[in-house]
C-alpha cells in the first residue's frame, strides 16, 4: 500500500509537470492554489474532526498581506508569500485559542463568526482598498531571477509552493503528531486520559491549517494580481468546505480532486454566474445526501471492495 501511494504521487507530479503543455497555465495555477487551500482545510476536518466555517479569514487575510507588501513595499514574491503565511499563522493562533474552546457545531459557528469579524475589518480598514481590493499587484521575479511575468514560469513556482505545502500536510498526517490528532478525532476523552494535552494538539493543528491556507491565499493573490473582499467573504469559507466534501473528507488527495472539480465547474459556468450559488448549493445537498465519502473516498471504497 505504501508503495502504491508513492506511485500515485509520482504519476500525479509528472502529470502536473507536463500539464501546461495542454491546459492554460493560469487555470492550472488557480486549481493548485485552491487545492492547497482545500488540503489545509482538510487537515482539520479530516484528521482532527473540527469543521471550520471560517477558513476564508486565513486565505483572504494572507492574500491582502502578500498583495500589499509586494505592491506597496516592493517585496519580492517569495517574501510576499512568506509574509502572508506568517500573518495567517498568527491569526490562526488567535482564532484557534478562541475557537477550540467549543466543539462540534459550536466550533463551526465560532469560526464563521470570527471570519465575519475579519471580513468587516478588511472592509473598513484603509490598506485593503475597501470595495476595490488591492489591484494590479506587480509580478516581480522570484529569487531575483525567475521571471513571473511569464505565466509558464510562474506556474512552476506555484507548483513548487503546492508541493511544499502538500508535503508538509502529508508528513504531518503520518507523523506521531498526526496519529495523536486522529486519536483525538476518534475519542477525545480517551486521548485526554492517555495524558495528551488535547487542546495544545488541536491548537497546533489549527495554526498549521491556517498557515497553509494563508500560503494558498498569498500565492493566489500574486497569480491573479488581486486581493479582494471575495477572498475573505463567508462564501469562500463555504467553497472550501464544498471542495473538500466533494473530493472526500479525510482522504489525502480528495480535497485536491474536489478543488479541481469545483474550479473547472466555475470556469465552464462563468456564463451562468447567477446560477453558481444554486449549483453549489445543489452539489452540497447531493453529496451530503447521496455520497458522503466524496469522489476519492468512493474510489477507495470501490477499490477495497474489489480487492477484498
Amino acid at each position: 500500500m505504501k508503495l502504491r501511494e508513492t506511485h500515485i504521487f509520482a504519476a500525479l507530479l509528472a502529470l502536473l509537470l507536463v500539464a501546461p503543455a495542454i491546459v492554460y497555465p493560469v487555470f492550472l495555477m488557480k486549481v493548485l492554489c485552491f487545492a492547497l487551500f482545500a488540503c489545509a482545510f482538510n487537515l482539520l476536518i479530516g484528521y482532527v474532526g473540527l469543521l471550520s466555517f471560517g477558513h476564508a479569514m486565513f486565505f483572504g487575510g494572507a492574500a491582502y498581506i502578500s498583495a500589499y507588501v509586494v505592491k506597496s513595499w516592493g517585496w519580492s514574491p517569495e517574501f510576499g508569500i512568506l509574509a502572508g503565511t506568517a500573518v495567517a499563522a498568527a491569526l490562526g493562533l488567535v482564532a484557534g485559542l478562541i475557537a477550540i474552546r467549543r466543539q462540534g457545531i459550536y466550533f463551526a459557528m465560532v469560526t464563521l463568526a470570527l471570519a465575519q469579524m475579519v471580513f468587516f475589518f478588511c472592509l473598513q480598514t484603509k490598506f485593503t482598498g475597501g470595495e476595490d481590493g488591492i489591484q494590479a499587484v506587480p509580478r516581480r521575479a522570484v529569487f531575483g531571477f525567475i521571471e513571473t511575468t511569464n505565466d509558464l514560469h510562474f506556474y512552476y513556482v506555484v507548483l513548487a509552493v503546492f508541493v511544499i505545502g502538500f508535503t508538509i500536510i502529508h508528513r504531518t498526517i503520518h507523523s506521531p503528531f498526526g496519529q495523536v490528532l486522529k486519536a483525538i478525532r476518534e475519542n477525545e476523552p480517551r486521548a485526554v486520559s492517555l495524558g495528551y494535552r488535547v487542546d495544545r494538539y488541536k491548537l497546533l493543528a489549527f495554526v498549521l491549517s491556517a498557515a497553509l491556507a494563508g500560503m494558498a491565499g498569498a500565492t493566489k493573490a500574486l497569480v491573479f494580481q488581486l486581493a479582494s473582499l471575495t477572498d475573505v467573504a463567508w462564501q469562500m469559507s463555504g467553497e472550501v468546505v464544498l471542495m473538500t466534501l466533494v473530493g472526500g473528507m479525510g482522504t489525502i488527495l480528495g480535497p485536491a480532486v474536489g478543488a479541481a472539480v469545483i474550479v473547472t465547474m466555475q470556469n465552464y459556468l462563468a456564463g451562468f454566474a447567477e446560477y453558481v450559488l444554486v449549483i453549489q448549493g445543489a452539489i452540497f445537498v447531493v453529496v451530503v445526501m447521496a455520497f458522503r465519502r466524496g469522489i476519492v473516498g468512493e474510489l477507495i471504497g470501490w477499490w477495497q471492495k474489489r480487492n477484498a
Binding site: G238, V241, L277, V278, I279, Q280, G281, A282, F284
Partner: peptide, 9 residues
C-alpha cells in the same frame, strides 16, 4: 448550508 445557498441563489 447547501439549502441556504440554493434558496438565496
Amino acid at each position: 448550508f447547501g439549502l441556504a445557498l440554493i434558496v438565496e441563489g
